[in-house]
Design a protein around this nucleic acid. Structure first.
Length: 226
DNA sequence: AACCAGGAGACAT
DNA sequence: ATGTCTCATGGT
């Protein structure tokens, strides 16, 4: 689909305006030591995330589905405290123990079962290292074939865990675009609009998404206009 | 006390 | 293709 230049300019203005208000959010990775320099993929400007970090991000992406990050974080801390925050640990972990750790993240029976399947799938594919070697579209289709990973979670994982230049569309994005009289359509249409409007690195797309979340979670959206 | 968080899947129409 | 229902916590 094709968008006119004024529409695309509006999207760029939105990102810039939000950047002026909130700056960078630095959502992920969560385990990087303060002051540690990020490493980047050549030509892609995406940070190379360690295997452990990547899995933690995948876990967080699932746990935060329709759930506040603070609650998802509690579940992650529980897993960490049980020393279960790893691919093999979760794949082989006890179902009841897993579920009890995930209670704060809501839908704990579903999420624990799905997370376990996802860990098994990663192992079956040959680990994070193998996934990382896949082209973005290939990896996206693979992730989408796994139970528990829909479009938003898949793109979240692609952007934050695998440093691909993908913008994550969520319900806030839809609401905000509607509010600003920007085109509203399917997931891919909105994502295409952002991709066509902003030629960005994974970090920038990730921050744009995070800023939109910030706009809503602070309540600032009530008085926001371009 | 209702409302809502950084959704996805199964199923019906 | 599009809508509706389930899932089932914690903070405000």
């Amino acid at each position: 689909m094709i968008f006119d230049s004024k529409t695309k300019q509006k999207v760029r203005k939105l990102n810039h305006t939000l950047y002026m208000i909130y700056g960078s959010q630095g959502w992920w990775p969560t385990t990087r030591e303060p002051g540690e320099k990020p490493v980047y993929y050549p030509g892609r400007e995406g940070r190379i995330v360690s295997y452990h970090e990547a899995f933690e991000i995948i876990t967080g992406s699932v746990l935060t589905q329709n759930t506040s990050w603070s609650n998802a974080e509690k579940a992650i801390m529980n897993l960490s405290g049980l020393n279960m925050l790893g691919i093999k640990k979760i794949a082989k972990g006890d179902d009841g123990l897993l579920a009890s750790a995930i209670i704060p993240a809501r839908y704990y029976n579903q999420k624990s079962a799905r997370l376990k399947q996802i860990a098994e799938n990663i192992i079956k594919e040959g680990g994070i290292k193998t996934l990382r070697s896949f082209p973005t579209e290939t990896l996206r289709k693979l992730l989408l074939s796994w139970t528990g990973i829909g479009q938003e979670t898949a793109d979240s994982i692609l952007c934050y865990a695998f440093s691909r230049d993908i913008f994550v569309v969520d319900t806030y994005t839809r609401r905000l675009f509607h509010k600003l009289n920007l085109p509203s359509g399917t997931y891919e249409e909105i994502q295409n609009l952002v991709h066509q409007s902003i030629k960005a690195s994974p970090a920038e797309y990730g921050d744009f998404h995070a800023r939109i979340v910030k706009l809503y979670s602070t309540g600032d959206v009530k008085t926001f206009s371009l």
